[in-house]
């Protein structure tokens, strides 16, 4: 019982994921294969880093709707630099990340400085970044080609791409930040009760701004993985990704009200979302069915989590 209480959350959603994998294994002839695992590892890095950043924002009690568009803008900038201006990846990649960081910082400054709900600020940023992405690329997809693909190539000796390991690195890094540092404690405390934090003599503003900055940076990093996988920069990249990220984070048990969450569990949430998408495509499900099933799984996964918490007497 103690194990269940300490790690029950993780075990619970991990079980949901394994169940999904087994289910598709039965339904499809070729799902349970090393190949599927490799494809899965190849497609999740962008969503993983974005969902990781989003986890922190949700824990602090905010929301960031702009991540998909920020990814689009960072991709657009990367495409412009590499295709039109022939700038090598080592220089354009940091610039693309900085674009994301700037967008995140603006989100944070407006949310915290003017005390505008982050929902509104990031909704505005969603529009701004998407528009800017179209402007930068003149609405054209930029084909970058081999120069960006090294990030998506396999790590020597493994069957997983480099981007996958980097994204897992981000997940672990942010989890450590959350659990083992004072800043992490502050983030959780702010999400639980910001007023109390202020009364304790801690200024919550720097931490909050930093969280949005990190989230924007994650979107910038995600754009690199996204472009590397597709070999192209697409101004439409990442549209709707904010919702997939929020779904993954919430499936991972992070509270939309703030104060509770884990980046590692978000990662399992990402696995669930991605496995579902891959599995449904592999069994050749129709588009309407895909949507219905995806929605149902999101609700089911969250319900299981809430139910388990109630069983062990947690107040949900």
């Amino acid at each position: 019982m103690k194990i269940l209480k300490d790690h029950g959350d993780t075990v619970g959603i991990l079980a949901v994921w394994i169940l999904l994998v087994l289910l598709f294994g039965v339904l499809s002839d070729h799902f349970l294969s090393a190949n599927t695992l490799t494809t899965l590892a190849g497609r999740i890095p962008a969503l993983t880093v974005i969902a990781a950043g989003m986890t922190l924002v949700l824990i602090v009690g905010g929301i960031d709707l702009s991540v998909g568009s920020v990814l689009g803008l960072s991709s657009a900038v990367l495409g412009l630099l590499m295709v039109d201006w022939k700038v090598p990846l080592v220089i354009s990649a940091p610039i693309a990340i900085v674009v994301g960081m700037l967008a995140g910082t603006v989100n944070g400054l407006f949310t915290v400085g003017l005390r505008i709900p982050s929902f509104l600020v990031t909704l505005g940023m969603l529009e701004i970044c998407r528009g800017a992405a179209y402007l930068v690329t003149r609405s054209q997809t930029k084909y970058i080609g081999a120069s960006v693909e090294p990030l998506a190539s396999m790590l020597p000796g493994t069957t997983f791409p480099i981007s996958f390991f980097l994204s897992v690195g981000v997940v672990v890094g942010l989890q450590v930040l959350l659990e083992k540092t004072i800043l992490g404690r502050h983030i959780v405390a702010i999400g639980t009760n910001e007023h109390a934090v202020r009364l304790a003599g801690i200024d919550p503003r720097p931490a909050k701004i930093l969280v949005f900055l990190v989230c924007g940076t994650c979107a910038g990093v995600g754009s690199l993985f996204h472009c590397a996988r597709l070999g192209s920069a697409d101004p439409n990249a990442g549209s709707g990704m904010e919702l997939a990220a929020i779904a993954a984070v919430v499936i991972g048990g992070t509270s939309l009200l703030g104060g509770r969450g884990s980046v590692i569990k978000t990662f399992i949430g990402v696995l669930i979302v991605a496995t579902l998408e891959a599995g449904l495509a592999q069994i050749g499900a129709s588009e309407p069915l895909k949507r219905v099933v995806t929605g149902a799984v999101i609700i089911a996964a969250v319900s299981v989590d809430v139910f388990r918490r109630r069983c062990i007497g947690e107040n949900v």
């Binding site: 494809t39 997809t141 996204h226 597709l230 192209s232 697409d234 439409n236 549209s239 998408e277 592999q282």
Partner: peptide
């Protein structure tokens, strides 16, 4: 969409 098509094609290729 590029990204959607990429995921679907990956699944088709595995299957």
């Amino acid at each position: 969409e590029m990204e959607k098509a990429n995921s679907i094609a990956a699944a088709m290729l595995s299957e």
